[in-house]
Amino acid sequence: MDKNENLRKDLQRVAYYPGCALEGSGHAYNRSTKQVGKKLGLDLVEIENWNCCGAMEVKNIDPEIQNFLSVRNMSIAKHKMGFDVVMAPCNGCYHNLKKAEHDIAHREPTRTALEKLSKKSKVPEYKAGDIETIHALDWIKHAIGESNLARQVKNSLKGLKIANYYGCMYTRPRHIFPEKDQGENSESTSNPHFMDDLLRAAGAQIIDFPLKTACCGGAHTLSDCDTSTRLVLNILQAAETCGADVIATECPTCHTGLEMHQIRAEETLNITTKPVMLYFTQLLGLALGLSPRKLGIQENISDSLDLLRQQGLA
């Protein structure tokens, strides 16, 4: 083990919050996350009877209701299941759990509202610090680490040129992620690199990609299609110009948004872009020797099988 990697034993078994998107459009992300976890000997225990986190919508109806949705899930993980860590692979869920944690710790009106809502809903009271929320990237990075991962690689991703796309909710706003920007081994909010680190350890060629945290217009992907298509095109064309074959994603909304508006740009603007989209867990799974079918690669809308066959990965 690299002495710089401070691996955490407590992440071997964590509570798992898949969220609604991973049961729908992001099912391939759900499947590949579970498969990669299993292959690496990590345990995921799904939160019992979880509810929606409210995504980017419920907060516009009322921010404290959105906080309550997150708190109910965290409370179940803590008080009914006895976990200290919740892993959420969806950027939206991850963001909302973090936001609730931040507001409880820093805002009196939130505490008052949540106390009321929890009491009436008969949800055990959640207190700041009861749960640590992590992303799937944190999970693999801190439970396994790059050198362990590199040792388990069966099919190196060598030759695959990847641009890593993190989207908005994984790093913004910085104040809800107090553990980030804490120097070595921590994630950076201005230049996130956990996905770069993991995929590089799996052998991939990581492309310098300036739009890592640009916005894909995900919140308005259907309500303001033209804006979203334009924002997605920025990302796809920048990745292509930088020489990427693949855009690796870590969020079901970003992933589907990129796939959807790549098609829409072709249909409505007649602009074709080449990069294909794959979840980072699918790429890691391939490197670990899992079959494309097990990782749900043919379930993606973006068709990457030809490229993967050329690279000897499928």
């Binding site: 908005c168 909710m169 790093t171 913004r172 916005c215 995900g218 919140a219 308005h220 303001d224 924002l231």
Partner: peptide, 13 residues
């Protein structure tokens, strides 16, 4: 209404 909720503003405010 066209704000896309990318949170860049909240990030830098």
């Amino acid at each position: 209404w066209q704000c896309v909720s990318c949170h860049k503003c909240t990030h830098v405010c």
